[in-house]
Design a protein around this nucleic acid. Structure first.
Lengths: 402, 402
DNA sequence: CCGCCTTTGTTCGAGGCTAAATTTAGTGAG
DNA sequence: CTCACTAAATTTAGCCTCGAACAAAGGCGG
């Protein structure tokens, strides 16, 4: 559904897309492949014939028919490859190694100081270890980080929270690792994961909104991530909500994030006496859960402001669905009352029914998202560009093209 | 530049795109056509050969070479067709008839009451007259209206300001007129015009923001209009800017439009004593121009609020450029001071350089935009859909397919 | 058991686009 | 004037995809 209407893939993209589909959605019939990828059955027959000959895929059992000829399921001969995903934050790098179907093989976290002059070299070193530790065919490395990335392929990064400006992350990592490297904004990587494994199967246009240290947002439009003119779309954390107000990491005052980001919540909570001056976000959440009114009010007010702002974003973008993710979502129950009241009330009547889903939080979420940049590249030729081509080449020739 | 990277047109789309290009950008060489449309020179040679045979285009003069073989310019044999554009408002319909290159042939305005039960029939009648009065090949009719339109082809409209809900505008007009009809949100039509004739030639991603009775916004992303999941994107006039505040036509309170739309400005001006209770927007603007402080303050405050909100929109969408249009733009000088100060200050540093251009206002703007839906359809197969195909058929067989 | 239906999957011819090589038509240096 | 160079336009061969017709394979009602 989400993919129908997508541009017909051409050239070896079809082969890659078929392989990617079998990897991400599991065994499928030829007819299904044709429907999902929006190509003709004739093309699927030809493509699969070739892939069968090369023994990249195999025919599995037939499924019982429901009135017509029973479908023959096709599956990958084996995990045709894996990917490594890394999420870079201000104090650590989270790394996962995943199979083509998205299952996490290994996962770890390494301390990291992005402000050091040689931070990029350090990052390259960390990833080099991960690449070396990966066994089996490695399709590529996906990197997610909090900042604007001009394109997945070139990977030129502006990330104020990391202290990086015009940093050539993509090029450096590529040179250091010798495998395809795709770089994107961290929230966009979550959106890419949703396209491949999540709600993208049912919805073509949705937004992924994250709550955590900051507030982020990735927009999926007609099955692919909208990145804006310079990869800077989705900075909803820096929507100004008041003319002045608390100052924000971005240098301005009155940003949404300055109110409802982790630091903003803590500052408000301390001022209101809801927690002591040394309290953490966990302290605050505990107090709110315990029913302490001042603490609960912090979350309720944050939910209201967040809801009001998100209503504006919905009016601007008109998504089908909003998916909430990120660390902060663990405490969503505390936000929800204030949010729902304010959000629904300030939506235009025609939009009031929009679905908002809070995903459960998992530690690996971000890094798995980064890995899915690689796994999504067969479906998103435009975004993945030249590095995506390399990924596709590797997907089709297990002995690692380069 | 803007169009490069666009999906290669296929099938008869190439012929239509070549004709459309020659119509909208004037005579071009084959090499230019190939570059702009992103197709191979070989295809252009083949396509133009056929069009030359059919005498739809002709070879014009050669241009002096700069080191290589001189280019031969190709041009349309004659105006290969025209289009009719109509903008529907709460009290009138503005209609223009344009040539393929966008020059306005005729223009008029007809009173119209959208709240009447038979409003759609009345609109069909008005347009039937326009179609009858049009001489020469008519490619189609474009209709722009203030509301959400699910798709240009089906033309199912939700327009609170017209009192229309789930109104089958497209289908009805099509049945009544017997020519291709494309329907879209009015601001999107301005955006379509910008793609074909305006800043779309230099920018691939920009926003068109209108100031007038309400505040609207159309987003162009990678050369085509982003419509959102249900054609409702760009309702930035209904971004909530306060928790409560003046009530708005959409049923909510505190919308941007309630403050800086025409009604909002007037209400604020009356309350501040800047104009009398019977004053109009013209009165207010005159007073402000004359230097009356209370009147000037109304505009300055509106500019500030508008700037702050637009900064948030820029953070969300990340366009390359903002084009300001609409009736209200006549008084932009009055808004500008407040706007610039607030807008730039509340933008993130990386975005602070974004260009904002105020287009000059012309009476026909809206209706010409609607007409350009038709003229843009060769370039935007996805948006224009089945009706676009009909337009393309008519573009290639002057004796009017149907 | 037998047609008739539905759905899957294949074959084949046609159309459309492209890359690469080639031809055409100029400029400009010596 | 000639030769090298450049860019435009064309030709050619080949690949990719699709539509349409057809074959395959089962369910279902009589």
């Amino acid at each position: 559904m989400a993919r129908s209407g997508q541009v017909s893939p051409r050239g070896d993209l079809v082969r890659a897309a078929v392989l990617g589909l079998l990897g991400t959605r599991g065994a499928s019939s030829r007819a299904d492949i044709a429907r999902v990828l929006g190509i003709s059955p004739a093309t699927v027959t030809q493509t699969t014939k070739e892939l069968l000959q090369r023994e990249l895929i195999t025919e599995l059992r037939s499924v019982p028919s429901n009135g017509g000829r029973p479908a023959t399921l096709l599956g990958l001969v084996r995990a045709a490859g894996g990917a490594i995903g890394a999420k870079v934050t201000a104090d650590h790098v989270a790394i996962v190694s995943v199979d083509l179907d998205g299952t996490v093989r290994t996962s770890r976290s390494v301390p990291f100081d992005p402000s050091r002059p040689a931070a990029l070299e350090a990052l390259a070193g960390i990833l080099r270890d991960a690449v070396a530790a990966h066994d089996g065919q490695l399709l590529g490395v996906g990197v997610g980080l909090p900042g604007a990335v001009d394109s997945q392929t070139s990977g030129l990064v502006d990330a104020p929270t990391l202290g990086w400006s015009r940093s050539p992350v993509g090029r450096r990592l590529r040179d250091a690792l010798g495998v395809p490297v795709l770089v994107d904004n961290d929230v966009n990587t979550l959106a890419a994961a949703q396209i491949v494994y999540g709600h993208g199967r049912e919805y073509a246009s949705f937004m992924v909104v994250t709550i955590g240290l900051g507030i982020g947002c990735g927009t999926v439009f007609q099955g692919s991530v909208s990145r804006g003119a310079h990869g800077g779309a989705g900075e909803i954390g820096h929507i100004p909500v008041t003319d002045d107000g608390p100052s924000c990491g971005c240098g301005n005052t009155g940003c949404l994030e300055a109110y409802v980001g982790e630091a903003g919540l803590l500052a408000a909570a301390v001022e209101a006496g809801a927690i002591g001056p040394r309290g953490t976000i966990a302290t605050l959440a505990r107090a709110a859960r315990a029913g302490k009114p001042a603490a609960a009010a912090i979350y309720r007010d944050a939910g209201r402001l967040f809801g009001r702002t998100l209503a504006g974003v919905v009016h601007t973008v008109d998504p089908d669905l909003i998916v909430l993710m990120g660390e902060g979502i663990r405490d969503w129950a505390l936000w929800e009352t204030g949010f729902e009241e304010s959000f629904r009330r300030q939506l235009m009547p025609a939009r009031r029914g929009i679905r908002v889903l809070a995903e459960s939080w998992s530690e690996d979420q971000w890094a798995v998202g980064a890995a899915s940049l690689v796994l999504a590249s067969p479906f998103d030729a435009v975004a993945a560009g030249a590095q995506g081509e390399l990924v596709r080449a590797r997907l089709q020739t297990p002995e690692a093209a380069r």
